[in-house]
Amino acid sequence: MINDIWILATASLVAAACALVGVFLILRRQALMGDAISHSVLLGIVLAYLITDSRALPIMLGGAVIIGLLTAWLSDTLNRVGKLQNDASIGIVFTLFFAIGVILVSLYAGQIDLDQECVLYGEIAFIPFDTLHIGGGKNLDDGFEIGPRAFWAIAVVFIIVLISIIVAFNRLQTVAFHPKLALSLGINIVFWHYFLMTLVSMTTVASFDAVGAILVVALLVIPASSAYLIAKSLKAMLWSAVAYSQASVAIGYTLAYQLDSSISASIAVSAGILLCLTVALLEIKKQRQRATATAQ
């Protein structure tokens, strides 16, 4: 029972953090960048682990952020210097990084507790067994168990994302909706671009244990897109994206329980189903409006 609560808490934090970051990805038309970074983060995690031999959160976050920013920068450079289309340069960079990541995982399969499957699904069901102990050798209680590692990772990242959005709300809003205005106001667009990429990298790495490298794309893009369809302001969009994400966690968890399928995949599928419902409702509304317009 307590395990279920930990799983649900982790899942809803992952979904909420992804939804918040995803809103800005959708608004900045960087959905593909989210896809790219979530793939290349794998390389960051594997490299960080192989180099430092530790799974401490700051190291994982650091590795992921470095590789995430490298992905963003390399695709940008390839786009400018190599004169390649934007999406093509993104595609070339992230597939290479991801491929190297997978090769490293299969080369050092014995040493890393990652396998190819876990890269794809994540292992949210096993999260409660990998717990964090506080103050093992320090002055606090000896090895006091405070809950799953993955939960605290995503909790830290969620708080970072939340604080960034609250503090930099106006800046992010201007950059997201009107980059040219932001430029003329003297806002450093490049900085905010890479700032967003940093948030994306941190969110994906913290979600990695829970949902894996690819399903995190679903959580980044789908709830935010649903919110984009119905919201009228940035604040409303952020709130509704979070609401969508929490609804998908609830539905997905039930679905997974009923069908005995992967929890993370079910959550992503329910996010997609909610998006389909939203689109369908909007279509019906549109058609009804058209009908009344022709009737008049």
């Binding site: 959708i26 038309r29 960087q30 959905a31 593909l32 989210g34 896809d35 999406d87 794809l120 699904y121 690819i214 399903l215 794309v217 679903a218 980044l220 893009v221 789908i222 897109s225 984009y228 369809l229 069908l259 005995d260 399928s261 992967s262 993370s264 995949a265 079910s266 992503a268 599928v269 996010a271 997609g272 998006l275 689109v279 909007l282 279509e283």
Partner: peptide, 30 residues
Amino acid sequence: NTKIKADAALAITLSFFFAIGLMLLSFIQG
């Protein structure tokens, strides 16, 4: 047909279908 942009549509389709596939795969494996 919707406000969703082309790049987001690509990412949505990709991740949604993939999630369905993984869900079915985990279902089959059970």
